[in-house]
């Protein structure tokens, strides 16, 4: 969806070109028409989810408004969390911080763990994709390790690092690395022999071959892995933070539960969902940007 929105930008730029240019090409639709068309396209994308969202809210309100309901209706959630929504940046020390700081702390952990996983995953994936022996040796181990749930690693990580922060980062790392490795390996293995022949005739050295042929050729696969990885990272960080404590959106949710602030939990869930969505779109957008033209025609 984002990418579509980006693609329409050149059209806007064209619309603002001086009038004489328009005069030379009579077939062009007038600017007004094109604005109308764009507005229609936006409406088509935005209006249906808005309607569904509103209906869901009404349904939720109706269900939870009755006396004795265990969960608060949206109106109460908003009332309870107004302060948190309007003041995301307050900082009273300790873990008493605005939601922005909690999300920020979680995102920093994800950034560290995920970037490490991306670098190590692409490197290992390349090795496994390139060498038959590396694949035979490593692939079965990967296949077993990747089925271990993220949180199962946490106690081991705590034992090893004796600190919450590196343990959380390690959990992110170990969660998101597997899809990156596996997809990269598949991408490398699927590089057409033709490209390898071209590289051989031109006599690219291994480093040039890696950067100029392997990475671009495998990029669509690598980005598939990266996109799955970022989703898993975000899934894992919330759970890990509930256990390690400190500042972080996962801990915020757990803390809210312990203090019976159900409304705050719901607000945090909204934020978690939106941030997860944005992260996914960011990686997808980056992938589109990097791999444009990679599709073989």
């Amino acid at each position: 969806m984002n990418v579509q929105a980006i693609k329409t930008e050149p059209a806007t730029a064209l619309a603002t070109t001086p009038a004489p240019v328009v005069a030379f090409s009579p077939k062009r639709t007038p600017a007004l028409d094109r604005y109308g068309k764009m507005a229609r396209e936006v409406a088509v994308r935005v209006v249906p989810p808005l309607i569904v969202f509103t209906l869901l809210m009404i349904f939720w309100e109706l269900v939870c408004r009755r006396a004795g309901s265990t969960l608060p209706p949206p109106s109460k959630v908003f009332q309870d969390t107004k302060e948190l929504i309007y003041h995301p940046f307050f900082d009273n020390g300790g873990t008493d911080k605005g939601l922005f700081w909690h999300l920020y702390a979680s995102l920093v952990r994800v950034a560290y763990g995920y970037l490490l996983a991306a670098v190590a995953g692409i490197a290992l994936g390349t090795l496994v994709g390139q060498s038959v022996w590396a694949m035979r040796g490593l692939d079965p181990i990967f296949q077993v390790l990747r089925t271990i749930p993220p949180l199962a690693w946490l106690p081991l990580a705590l034992a090893a690092f004796r600190d919450g922060q590196p343990s959380a980062i390690f959990v992110i790392f170990i969660t998101s690395i597997w899809p990156i490795i596996i997809n990269t390996a598949v991408g490398i293995r699927n590089i057409p022999q033709d490209y390898r022949n071209v590289a051989a005739v031109v006599q690219l050295n291994p480093v040039e071959f890696f950067t100029k042929v392997m990475l671009p050729a495998a990029a669509p696969y690598i980005f598939t892995g990266l996109r799955i990885g970022i989703g898993l990272s975000w899934l894992a960080i919330i759970a890990a933070e509930m256990l390690i404590g400190g500042v972080g959106i996962g801990f915020f949710i757990w803390d809210a539960w312990n203090s019976s602030h159900i409304s705050e939990i719901i607000l945090a869930l909204f934020y978690v969902g939106i941030v997860g969505f944005v992260l996914d779109r960011m990686i997808a957008g980056l992938g589109k940007l990097v791999t444009h033209g990679t599709s073989v025609s």
Binding site: Y195, V202, G293, V296
Partner: peptide
């Protein structure tokens, strides 16, 4: 490169 090949399916790098 002293024996450059023109491949059947052109083999241009698409990126």
């Amino acid at each position: 490169p002293d024996r450059a090949v023109v491949f059947q399916n052109h083999s241009l790098l698409p990126w």
